[in-house]
Amino acid sequence: MSKVKPRVKVPKTAEVGELIEIKTLISHPMHSGRAVDGDGKLIPRQIINSFRASFNGTVVMSVDLKPSVSANPFFTFPFTVTESGTFDFVWVEDGGKEYTKSKKISVG
């Protein structure tokens, strides 16, 4: 299986009260369980089924994904900066395997 690699883009610094945009991408085939491989065999379902973004330990945004989400699930969403801290991003694959990525942001 190709390597699953999470990537996140968050500004390094921001002003207090500034609205920033967070971009996340994880390279993942998102096998829907409906497609067949070169030999005509059904590829079993294997998708990222949930994603969550936390800031200083509190979940700010989460997504439940179904097989209809494209390969390499990509999200952008806003966040209002109130203090310096750490973002933790977690992607959960079918079977429970988790992929994580952290980013720091500082204000001022």
Partner: peptide
Amino acid sequence: AMGACYAT
């Protein structure tokens, strides 16, 4: 906490 509501 997001401060706005949009997503892509």
